Amino acid sequence: MTADQYLYEILGREAVDMGPQSPILSVLGTLNPLLWRWAGNRLHSVTPSGSFAKGTPNRSGTDIDLFISLSQETTETLREVYENLFSFIRANGYAPKRQNVSINIRVSAAYDVDLVPAKRQNMMNFDHSLYRRRADTWTKTNVQTHINHVRAGGRQSETRILKLWRTQKGLELPSFYLELTTIDALRGYNGTLSQNVWRVFQYLSSSFVGARVVDPANTNNIISDDLTAAEKNQVKAAADRALLANSWEEIVR
């Protein structure tokens, strides 16, 4: 089996139905009534975002992100919105886990769901204010811009392999940070799947730690600041080990 055959076999194993009839979308029907009860007329929309919307999910990863858009008339602070949603979800029988900008829950014993509450800034576009729990601050973002950017980058297969590698090696590397890094590392380069992934490992080893990664929806939001220097060096060290591996089986499974 060639390197490309091996990686494509993994992608096949990890494939997720992303069509309009995907079983994963059933979580919308389960959670929508609950979210409407929580937000009432403040709720503007609940839409798939994250990996599912960008075409980069893996079966063994978080199944779907739901972006909860609240009206710009919402009076609570973003921190209060986040904590109120956490408490409400827990009071309704779920076991939520706090993450940086999302709240993770398990739905129907089958799907992991990340809930991302945000406040719409105005009705002219899809810009939102989002709470960042680690820094206890907020940032402006536009998830539709993120989706469009990653889809246009065209590196979904490479990103999915690298997400599996990240998870299997226990690395702290947010998905959007990894998606943007993969696009940057492969800009202007078009090899086979294995060659492309290898090139990303080379980038992670040589350039990742010092690279400044900017949110395409907000140039004031520096995505690369989401990791500490120690966490970035852990990613670099793991990439160094991948480049020294004797086989792809040692790198990702």
Rank of each mutant, 00 (worst) to 15 (best):
Gln5Val: 12
Gln5Lys: 15
Tyr8Cys: 00
Glu9Met: 07
Ile10Leu: 12
Gly12Leu: 06
Gly12His: 13
Ala15Gly: 07
Gly19Ser: 11
Gly19Cys: 04
Ser22Trp: 07
Pro23Leu: 02
Leu25Thr: 09
Leu25Asn: 06
Ser26Ala: 08
Val27Pro: 01
Val27Gly: 01
Thr30Lys: 13
Leu31Cys: 04
Asn32Phe: 15
Asn32Asp: 12
Leu34Cys: 07
Ala39Asp: 02
Gly40Cys: 08
Asn41Lys: 15
Arg42Ser: 09
Leu43His: 05
Ser45Thr: 08
Phe52Asn: 05
Ala53Met: 03
Asp63Pro: 00
Asp63His: 11
Ile68Met: 05
Ser69Tyr: 04
Ser69Gly: 11
Thr74Ser: 11
Arg79Ala: 01
Arg79Met: 04
Val81Lys: 04
Val81Cys: 06
Glu83Leu: 12
Asn92Ile: 04
Pro96Arg: 05
Gln99Asn: 13
Ser102Arg: 04
Ala110Asp: 08
Pro117Met: 06
Pro117Trp: 05
Ala118His: 07
Lys119Tyr: 03
Lys119Gly: 13
Asn122Pro: 02
Asn125Arg: 15
Asn125Cys: 11
His128Ala: 04
Tyr131Pro: 00
Tyr131Asn: 04
Arg133Asp: 07
Asp136Lys: 14
Thr137Asp: 11
Thr137Glu: 13
Thr137Ile: 11
Trp138Gln: 14
Thr139Gly: 10
Lys140Tyr: 14
Thr141Asn: 13
Thr141Lys: 08
Asn148Leu: 09
Asn148Asp: 06
Asn148Glu: 04
Gly153His: 01
Thr159Val: 03
Leu162Phe: 08
Lys163Pro: 11
Leu164Pro: 00
Thr167Gly: 09
Gln168Ala: 07
Gly170Cys: 12
Leu173Thr: 04
Leu178Gln: 12
Thr181Gly: 04
Thr181Glu: 01
Ile183Glu: 05
Asp184Trp: 08
Ala185Gln: 02
Leu186Gln: 09
Arg187Leu: 08
Arg187Lys: 15
Tyr189Gly: 00
Leu193Arg: 06
Leu193Ser: 03
Gln195Met: 07
Gln195Glu: 13
Asn196Tyr: 00
Val197His: 01
Val200Arg: 07
Val200Met: 01
Tyr203Cys: 03
Ser207Phe: 11
Phe208Trp: 10
Phe208Glu: 00
Phe208Gln: 03
Val214Thr: 13
Ser224Asp: 07
Thr228Tyr: 02
Ala230Asn: 12
Lys232Thr: 00
Asn233Gly: 05
Asn233Lys: 14
Ala238Cys: 09
Ala239Pro: 02
Asp240Met: 10
Asp240Phe: 09
Arg241His: 12
Leu243Ile: 01
Asn246Lys: 15
Asn246Asp: 14
Asn246Tyr: 15
Ser247Lys: 05
Trp248His: 05
Glu249Asn: 13
Glu250Phe: 03
Val252Ala: 05
Val252Phe: 09
Arg253His: 14
Arg253Ile: 09
